[in-house]
């Protein structure tokens, strides 16, 4: 079990291998990787600056993990989120869930991402050819979390 906020990139394969190492009860692994797109809202994106509210971020992610464990029959959970300056193609976030059977892994992975998007205190600022702009929250993200 772990949540991490870091500047450094991550290796999803290595993280998955580490998470399921030694647990012979794992029969399913679901993972999600979010990456930086080169365009957003009809504008080119040259870079993205990710900031967070240190302390609260880790607390919120840990609470989400606890909630996911209570709700789904999972064996282990990992959430890694990057901060700092990222460019198109860079990885932003990794969620990995291990479980005995696939439904719990798929569901918990999606649950964690849906609530990470609406509750974890991260903010994105885009650097575009026209200058910097803060990314606005999307109603569709609230709707996604609302389905749970």
């Amino acid at each position: 079990m772990a949540v991490r906020v870091q500047v450094a990139d991550f290796d999803a394969g290595a993280e998955i291998a580490r998470l399921r190492a030694g647990d012979r009860g794992v029969g399913a692994v679901a993972s999600f990787v979010g990456t930086v797109r080169a365009d957003n809202d009809a504008s080119q994106v040259d870079a993205m600056v990710l900031e967070h509210y240190a302390g609260m971020t880790e607390a919120v992610l840990s609470e989400l993990e606890t909630a996911a464990r209570a709700r789904f029959d999972v064996r282990d959970v990992l959430v890694v989120h990057r901060i700092g300056v990222l460019v198109p193609g860079d990885q932003i976030v990794l969620v990995v869930v291990t479980s005995a059977h696939r439904d719990a892994a798929f569901d918990a992975c999606r649950y964690l991402m849906d609530f990470l998007k609406t509750e974890a205190p991260f903010w994105k600022k885009e650097r575009t050819p026209a200058g910097e702009r803060w990314v606005e929250a999307r109603a569709s993200d609230e709707a996604a979390a609302g389905r749970w």
């Binding site: 979010g34 990710l50 967070h52 509210y53 302390g55 609260m56 607390a59 919120v60 989120h81 932003i92 976030v93 991402m113 990470l116 998007k117 609406t118 509750e119 974890a120 205190p121 991260f122 903010w123 994105k124 803060w134 990314v135 606005e136 929250a137």
Partner: peptide, 28 residues
């Protein structure tokens, strides 16, 4: 947020509390 927990308008605040003010989050 009050002391790093999401708060609402009616959440109590006390002496020395940390009250964070921020826009809707956009991580992930």
């Amino acid at each position: 947020a009050v002391n790093q927990r999401l708060a609402r308008n009616d959440t109590p605040v006390g002496e020395g509390d940390e009250v964070a003010v921020f826009p809707p989050v956009t991580g992930g």
